[in-house]
Design a protein around this nucleic acid. Structure first.
Lengths: 195, 195, 195, 195
DNA sequence: CATGAATGAGTTTTCATTCAT
DNA sequence: TATGAATGAAAACTCATTCAT
């Protein structure tokens, strides 16, 4: 068997399951993905999934929280401070696309499970937390007269959904998101929200 | 029973089913909605659905095509011609939100079923058609140097996902989309895509 | 299809399921009986059971309560009053065996599910009620110096388990419980508990 | 680890498994007890059970035969000979309760597995043997006009089920079986079966 | 035409058993 | 020898669909 170095076989199977779940939940959705399908995609028996996750719901929630947290730590937590807002925005925008490139399917997964009724309190709390962080950032930039004076949730919606829109368009084959396009889009999105 | 005037009881039941399907498919998704649930929401027996639609897939496809077509005819087909692009864009933007206001849940429904594997060739063709129409519009505006020189699918993605993002934000309770906000957003989105 | 007269086909299926459940739960036990087996024994599809009973646990609890109540009404409620205790006891004893003869398998069923952890509060309450009724009866007879002065639960255990023991012995093929044997046993059991 | 003196670690684990099996099979039943649960209760890994017993069925059968045999040797084989029947009965009765006190749960276990379809030929043979021994004893006493003239299986059923009934009543918390109660019950049960 | 009870294939989940460590 | 992760067959249960009424 081919086990990634430095990983126990058990942990490796868990990874396989998580990988399969990210791919299938992110394309077919939670209810559109059956556990046998998931097992086959992961290359394990159906019973094996239940040695790693309590239930299908527990699996999707653990995944959701994992990726929400990863996004927070890889994108939001690493934004430069003490630089002009313009530059912070560029770092945010590039961070988002970098995250998408580094973790294929994660954005699709998060977007598709967004606000589904099988998400538990923990997942919703993380969701809230991310949103609040972005609202706060916008509010600060507005206080400095840098960003347009729309309700912060509106600004966040405009920016974030633009990002997701481009990622989706690429997934559907309408686009290729290279650095040039990402930067060009960044300029335009900034134009949308700057004062 | 209360039957809308000018509508046969049969047609009225079909409406009830369509209404229920729009609401449930648009919130819980296709696989997350069961036919018995749909029937109950519509106030009909489960068997009745099958007198109007061949199958669950046929139902969602008919719905998808219905609303895609309705959107094309109510929003895209009524855009003013022989007016400046700026004004056409404003009409488009307002038309989108008007459509959302007139047909509660329709945007959520279309967005959630987007590019799902249970959509058939017909649905995909309509999807294509709508997209192509928008791409063409953008291409024309770019030829006149009005709109920024990004790939048309990117421009469409930016605009349309901004619209959907605002609608979603309202659904989640983060926003109220009144005319003032819609117009303010319009200005900013136009700022994003104008040359 | 052969439907008992005066019974809707729906009610008839429910009867079939109840009959099958009494037989299988009473011989193989709750956990030893699978829903597909139950369905086959009842001559219905597995899904049909769930249109009549919420779950396997709900089924066994409804059955338990049904038969406990039936036993109370057919055996305990019809005991003669204003007759000597000797006669009441004979009526009780004969009533128990009559119940067993009338409702084949019911005693085995009740005995096998007795105090199982899948019985719910309602079932346990009925159990309690039956027990209390018997304890009270014994206490009264003791007050009149008719019955031996053991703790009432002990007296009830001796009598009731003697009854069940005979029924079991018949089921295993060791005995045939005809009237003569039942009456002879009654005399001996009375000898056991009389003062 | 705490290993009983004079016992190999292997034998000690086997004891742990047997102890766990007695407790769980005797309360939840054979089908209601899972091998992982059994392993946890025994404090061993699930795989370990299979180094000692071929299968779950083999385990329950070995247990059944073990306890049936133990009961025969500890209770039936030690009955005094050349003493009046009255005294032999007292010894039997006390022996039964002594056995229950010495081997907590064994009576519940034997009673619950009684005549289950997973018991094999060996187990059934031992069952038969025990029964026959008791039938013979009763027949002899009847020949001496000591015991009432019911079919021997009926007499055995009355006595043995009275014993089990008292043990059950204690398990359910209705009674405490102290020596006084046991002796008082013995007197009454003897009154039931004596000529 | 509308209904809803019935169905059985398919779902999520459990568990007796195996086997690499 | 003991382990416990992995397995897949089978369990409880759901649901799209049918059809007798």
């Amino acid at each position: 068997m081919n086990i990634p170095s430095g990983m126990s076989p058990r942990a490796s199977k868990r990874r396989d399951i998580e990988r399969a779940a990210l791919a299938l939940f992110g394309t077919r959705g939670f209810h559109g993905t059956s556990m046998p399908d998931l097992a086959e995609e992961a290359g394990v028996g159906p019973g094996t999934i239940y040695r790693h996750f309590e239930s299908k719901e527990a699996l999707v929630n653990e995944m959701y929280q994992h990726w929400k947290a990863k996004m927070a730590s890889e994108v939001y937590a690493n934004l430069p401070v003490d630089v002009p807002w313009r530059e912070r925005f560029r770092a945010l925008w590039r961070g988002l696309f970098q995250f998408d490139a580094d973790h294929h399917g994660a954005i699709d997964f998060l977007d598709l499970q967004f606000h589904s009724d099988y998400l538990d309190a923990s997942s919703r709390a993380l969701e809230q937390q991310s949103a609040t962080l972005l609202f706060t950032m916008i509010t600060m930039a507005q206080a400095e007269q840098i960003v347009v004076d729309l309700p912060p949730p509106a600004v966040v919606a405009l920016v974030y959904s633009s990002f997701v829109g481009l990622v989706r368009a690429q997934r559907e084959g309408y686009l290729t998101l290279d650095d040039a396009l990402i930067d060009a889009a960044e300029e335009r999105v900034w134009a949308m929200i700057r004062r």
